[in-house]
Every structure is written in C-alpha cells, then in structure tokens.
Amino acid sequence: MTKAHHLDAASPADVADVAGVADGAGRAAGVPAGHRLFARYAHAPNARGFCGPELGAALQRLAAGHTVSGLDVPAAARRFSGAWPYQALLAEHAGRVGHGGHVGGCGGSGGSGGGALDPLEERVVRAYWTGNDLTELVDARAYGTELLARFGAQAGHYWQHLTPELLPEVTPTHAFHVFGVYPWSRLLGRGAPEPVGVLDDCRIRVGRVLDVGGDELLVEIDRLVDESPGLRLSTPRPERVIWRTQDGPFIDAATLRPGACVAVHWNFACDELTAAEAATCQRLTVRQVEHTDSRLRRAAAD
C-alpha cells in the first residue's frame, strides 16, 4: 500500500533536474518560503503514493532546503487534490474580505478587500496545514458552501456524504479535510483498525520534542482513540518519529532542542512550530475531533 520512505524517481512533467544546496541558514536561495513550506507537508503522503504527482526526489530536496532546478511548484501543487482546492479557495476568500499587510502573524487586523492571494503564499499554506489568522478571518460557512459545491461536482460513490450537513464542521484546514471530507471517519467502528490509523497518520499531529536522535526524534504526542461510536484524543505519550531523509531534515538541525514543538505528518516530523502555531494547530484539531465525535454518536443513535 505504501512506497518506500525515500523518494527516488521524478516525473519529467514536473521537474527537469535537481541541483544546488541550501544556504547557511538551511533555506534554498531564491525559493519562495511558501513553496518550501508546502513541500514539507506534502512530502510524506506523496512519498507513499497517497496524494499528488510522482515528484520523486524533487519534493524531498526542496523540503530539505535544496534548490531544485526545473521544478514547477505551482503546477505540481495543483495536482494535490487534497490540498490545492482548499488553499486556492482560502486565497480567494482571504482576498475578498481583506487580508491586511502582516504576513505570518497570529492576529491580523484585516484590511480593505482586494484580489486573491497566491495559494502558495507562506501565510496561505500555513493557514491550511496548521492554521493561523487567515483561518479565523475567512467566513467558514461561506467557504464551506463553496468548497462542498466544488467537491460535490466531482463526487463519486465514496463522497456522497459531502452535503450541507457538514457545514458546521468546516474550517479551511487540513484537519477538516481529514475528518470531514475523507470517508475514513465513516468507516470507524466496523471492526478494522485501518480507519483510525489512517486518520491519525494523515492529520497533522503536534509533538513536543523530548530527545533529538540520529534519524529519529523522541516526542511527546497524542493519538486518536476509536471509542466506537465515538472518537477522542489520548493523553500525550512518548513516541519516536522520523525526522531525517537522505537529503537532510526539513527542520533546522542546528537549533532544534528538547522542548521544541514539531508538526508530525505520516510519522514524519516535517516542520518546527512556534508555541503559537502549535497551540493553534492543536486547538483546531481538538475542535475537529469533537465535531467528528458528535457526528458519529448522532449517527449511532439514529
């Protein structure tokens, strides 16, 4: 079901060649911050063949801070069906309501309306994957109505649950996609362990670093618990997660210390979070789990 962890083949449609190295700060010279941030979060599911085009070593090297010559990041990102529609619509809605001039903050003050943002702007990418001020700025119901209409036009047998009944659960985030849009939460309680495992690995988990090792970090982190018909988050406990690839870590190894917060996606620590970013991601996750738990319990009672 999965590919090897390390990517080893690139699609010629998306990348011509891979070259260059990161600068001293661990950032690829000239690469937009949003492009690299998108690669960090998209890498793990892409490496397993779950989402997006087969980008091979290109996405991994970009996420690790290397310059990737010939990689058309916007073209590649549009082929991530689980992320791009959210980021594109989020960028449109943020532009409509006024997104202010402060990039990357945690309490934007809005501003005058204008055109859509770039879906790969760092602030938009962050809003989708872990949440930030844009997540709160966008009207969730209006966003959700338009999002479900777009998805509904392409919905098949496994997506018949994409109805207005989902609107109370909507946030413009990856957590909503995992728990609300993906069909996996509807498969809980059927005796198989796969649904809760997929939901847990696919969501962005927040871990507190306990120890920095060679290829692994020891982090204190929670897990999803299937309490059919409900769902909850466990008390955080120690767990080892991968944080290095053959191209290096996605997190600055020179500054990572115990006590830091990291984002974990498919058992891979892909990003170091500020305390505010970690708190926002965890709050949105708790909210989504609570909505899912309520939906599951209502369905069981009917």
Rank of each mutant, 00 (worst) to 15 (best):
D8A: 10
D8P: 00
S11V: 01
V15Q: 04
A19T: 02
A19E: 07
G26E: 03
R27L: 15
V31E: 11
P32A: 10
H35Y: 12
Y41S: 11
A44Y: 01
N46G: 15
R48I: 13
P53R: 05
Q60P: 00
A63W: 03
G70D: 11
F80S: 09
G95S: 04
H102N: 11
S112I: 02
G113W: 00
P119C: 13
L120C: 08
V124R: 05
R126A: 15
Y128T: 01
T130W: 08
G131L: 10
L137Q: 02
V138A: 12
A142C: 13
A142L: 14
A149Y: 10
R150N: 14
R150E: 14
L162A: 09
V170W: 01
P172T: 09
H177I: 04
F179S: 11
S185V: 00
L187E: 10
L187H: 08
L187K: 03
R190F: 07
G191M: 06
G197S: 12
D200I: 00
C202G: 05
I204Q: 06
R205V: 03
V206C: 11
L210D: 06
G213D: 10
L224K: 02
L224P: 02
V225D: 14
E227W: 04
E227G: 13
L233I: 04
P236T: 10
R237I: 11
R244A: 15
T245H: 04
G248I: 03
G248W: 02
I251L: 13
L256M: 07
R257H: 05
G259I: 01
A263K: 00
V264E: 13
H265Q: 13
D271W: 02
L273Q: 03
T274Q: 08
A275Y: 02
Q282N: 14
V289T: 06
H291A: 14
H291W: 07
T292N: 05
D293C: 12
D302R: 12
